[in-house]
Design a protein around this nucleic acid. Structure first.
Lengths: 216, 216
DNA sequence: TCTGCAATTATGCAAGTGTATAATTGAGGC
DNA sequence: GCCTCAATTATACACTTGCATAATTGCAGA
């Protein structure tokens, strides 16, 4: 009958912040911003709502932190892919495209996050800045890969090709996330390699094949 | 001091439903589902909240109706484009791609709508059905255009090409909506024509150019 | 002009929202 | 072991949300 006060463990600030951010991202991915209420976030993080206010002055601040982390993670994935890739420019481009069109990048969860944040990104200048920065960085990476290809043109033409390739990648990514069961394994990846190859005038498919044989 | 009761005009059921749906779409496009509250929708439609319940049993029903109308409008645009296009298969494909990569299809508002609905579409089976139907119809149109090209392959290869082209179109559309000021006029369209041309092995750019000269 | 009814407004309510603040309690240093 | 203090919980509040229901009123038909 006595209202037992809930037991708890003290955690370091960093771990609690991470847990709260992870919970927020989870919920946004699943149900959009609407589902990520303060109480739901706290609940998923195994904590009571009041604690959020202890680590974040406002819910908006938590949202911003979550978005920042999401974007940083995605950027990190990209640079990781390039760091692990070979020296051959064609192989590097192929690896970049492949990575974007297979799990874990192709994932309904990511699309949910993307859609869940978009409106807030538009309204909040801070989030807009994060967004623009990450996007441009991604396309610049792509443009750099294209500029390194044998027989590459000038900067302007590389930029146009980068936009086109980015479009292909984004679009296929979108399709893969939205309708995961509509594609066979590797189908999306091969279509992407073939399309980007057609745009840039390289045989990325063949390149990628030998590359994977080497690994095996 | 007397609380004046608000004056109003009676309208036909159809016009009121349309007005409410339009208001809902407006608000979702601007601020996502979160901004489209019953009160905000009624306000924008120039009506009091209670009236919504008179035309829609629940808010969810209004949302579904709005989504259905959005999808029908978009499908209508596509068939219109094809109806107005020439007979030459290459020109038809080029017109299809062009239309998708210029206003009013490329429009931040549309992207806002798309993102605003995604999570509800995932949860609500009715909306999911509408979504899948429209998407497949669009890709089938594209596949039909590709199959009609000179030297087209079998159905399977046409399907793969359609997926790739759809990816390009979606991706470029996304970029154009998200960063409208990042591209010069027609830049997106030309990139799209060139990329889809590269994928399908046709010179859509040249084709499109002569086509527009004819109109002028 | 009057009358009836459906379209519309007004009001109210229970549940959920973010936030503020006070009350507890886990755990490290002495 | 105890004390301290920050980490955590509990409670409360003002506001918004969707929905229900009662009160009005525009307007078509007599």
């Amino acid at each position: 009958m006595t209202g037992e006060r809930r037991k708890f463990r003290r955690e370091g600030e960093e771990r609690r912040r991470e847990a709260l951010i992870a919970a927020a991202l989870d919920l946004i991915a699943e149900g959009g911003a609407a589902g990520a209420t303060v109480r739901a976030i706290a609940d998923r993080a195994g904590v009571t709502p009041g604690l959020i206010r202890h680590y974040f002055q406002t819910k908006e601040e938590l949202t911003r932190a979550a978005y920042r982390q999401l974007m940083e993670d995605m950027s990190g994935d990209n640079t990781e892919v390039l760091a692990a890739a070979q020296d051959d420019p064609v192989a590097r481009l192929a690896a970049f495209v492949s990575a974007a069109l297979r799990p874990p990048v192709v994932d309904p969860r990511r699309m949910g996050l993307w859609a869940g944040f978009i409106h807030q990104v538009r309204r909040d200048p801070d989030m807009a800045a994060i967004h623009a920065e990450t996007y441009i960085a991604y396309r610049d990476q792509l443009q750099g890969l294209i500029a390194a290809l044998p027989g590459a043109g000038d900067a302007a033409s590389c930029r146009a090709l980068a936009i086109a390739c980015n479009g292909v990648i984004d679009g296929l990514w979108l399709e893969g996330c939205a309708l995961p069961q509509a594609f066979a394994t590797d189908e999306l990846e091969q279509i992407g390699l073939s399309a980007v190859g057609a745009i840039t005038g390289q045989d990325l498919l063949a390149c990628r094949r030998t590359q994977e044989e080497n690994i095996a």
